[in-house]
Amino acid sequence: TSVASIKHMENEAARVGQEKQAGNEGLVVVSAMGDETDRLVSLAEEVQDQALDTRRELDVLLSTGEQVSIALVAMVLLKNGIAAKSFTGGQVAIRTDAVPNRSRILEVDADKLRVELAKEVVPVIAGFQGIDEAGTITTLGRGGSDTTAVALAARLDASECRIYTDVEGVFTTDPRIVESARCLEQISFEEMLELASLGSKVLHTRAVELAGKSQVPLRVLSSFNDAPGTLITREEDLTMEAPLISG
């Protein structure tokens, strides 16, 4: 939702500008615009022969959605006076296994990103994709962009990984169904995984698992307002007295 339209991109550029003014450095990981991935899948279905293995070509096709986004977001940042440069997953060496359409990240080479950050350039990176050992484009499947963001945050020792979405944070239950649902200020990785297993779609379990393993604090925020969102972190870093989610 953060890059669903040019207007959304302008809003995110303003956020980046505010962070820069506050003296914070960081990078931006984006997904495809709106329903672009679904559109690309539909195109593939029109030409696919089910008797043939076209998973490699599907990865190449689906990765173009994020490539459009990174170029446009970088252009918007530049227009707003913010030095920026776009990178595909392959260009920043996000190495994955060779499983088509649902690869897993094995390694991230952050040297190129550190060089850009040292020059006060904001790297805009395509989520959801990488390259395998042979240099073939791969995609990560569901939750791929969030997982990419967490992997990069971990590799760069970021203080926090912020995930902007269409909700204000993690709620005790679905606010569209239960009026009394409230947004949690903070929650542990373990509790977030439990919520995800119960059907919460705020974050994919892969991203939460990687954040917990890498000890990268996550913050879920709304793309549409300045609410503080929900911090997802280690149990020992929480300030609450008791867990809010129990099995």
Score class of each variant (00 low, 15 high):
Arg162Asp: 14
Ser223Phe: 02
Thr205Tyr: 04
Thr233Ile: 04
Pro228Asn: 09
Thr148Arg: 05
Pro175Tyr: 12
Met192Leu: 10
Val178Tyr: 14
Glu190Val: 03
Arg182Ala: 05
Thr172Ile: 01
Val220Met: 10
Phe224Ser: 11
Leu203Asn: 09
Ser180Asn: 12
Glu168Pro: 08
Thr138Met: 14
Thr205Val: 00
Val150Cys: 12
Gly212Cys: 03
Arg182Lys: 13
Thr233Asp: 13
His204Cys: 01
Val167Phe: 03
Leu140Ile: 10
Gly169His: 01
Val178Phe: 15
Ser159Trp: 00
Leu156Phe: 04
Leu221Asp: 04
Leu156Thr: 08
Leu198Trp: 15
Leu184Lys: 08
Asp146Tyr: 03
Gly212Ser: 07
Ser223Leu: 01
Arg182Pro: 03
Glu209Trp: 00
Met192Phe: 04
Tyr164Pro: 13
Ile163Gln: 04
Val216Ser: 04
Leu198Pro: 12
Gly141Met: 06
Ser188Gln: 14
Leu221Phe: 01
Gly141Ala: 04
Leu193Gln: 13
Pro217Gln: 08
Val216Tyr: 06
Arg206Phe: 00
Ala158Ser: 15
Leu156Asn: 13
Ala196Trp: 02
Glu179Thr: 05
Ser222Thr: 10
Ser222Asp: 09
Arg162Cys: 11
Gln186Leu: 05
Glu191Ile: 02
Leu231Ala: 05
Ala211Val: 12
Arg176His: 11
Leu210Gly: 06
Ala153Pro: 10
Arg206Trp: 01
Thr147Tyr: 12
Ile232Cys: 05
Ala149Glu: 02
Thr233Asn: 05
Leu140Asp: 12
Leu195Ala: 03
Ala181Lys: 07
Leu231Asn: 07
Ser159Ile: 05
Arg219Asn: 14
Gly229Ala: 07
Arg142Trp: 08
Leu156Tyr: 08
Gly199Gln: 15
Ser223Tyr: 02
Lys201Thr: 15
Arg234Ile: 00
Ser222Arg: 09
Pro217Arg: 07
Asp174Tyr: 03
Leu152Gly: 10
Glu160Cys: 07
Ser188Trp: 12
Leu193Trp: 07
Thr136Gly: 01
Arg155Trp: 00
Val208Trp: 12
Lys213Asn: 08
Ile163Val: 14
Thr136Pro: 00
Asp146Leu: 00
Thr136Cys: 04
Ile232Ser: 10
Thr172Pro: 02
Glu185Phe: 00
Arg234Leu: 13
Glu185Trp: 01
Gln215Glu: 15
Ile177Glu: 13
Ser214Gln: 15
Glu194Thr: 13
Asp146Arg: 05
Ser197Cys: 07
Ala211Ile: 13
Gly144Ser: 13
Ser223Asp: 07
Ala154Tyr: 03
Ser159Cys: 04
Thr139Val: 06
Thr148His: 04
Pro228Thr: 02
Ile137Val: 15
Arg219Trp: 06
Ser188Phe: 08
Leu184Gln: 10
Glu185Ser: 15
Thr147Arg: 03
Ser188Asp: 12
Val150Lys: 14
Ala196Gln: 11
Arg219Met: 10
Thr136Arg: 13
Leu210Lys: 09
Ser188Asn: 12
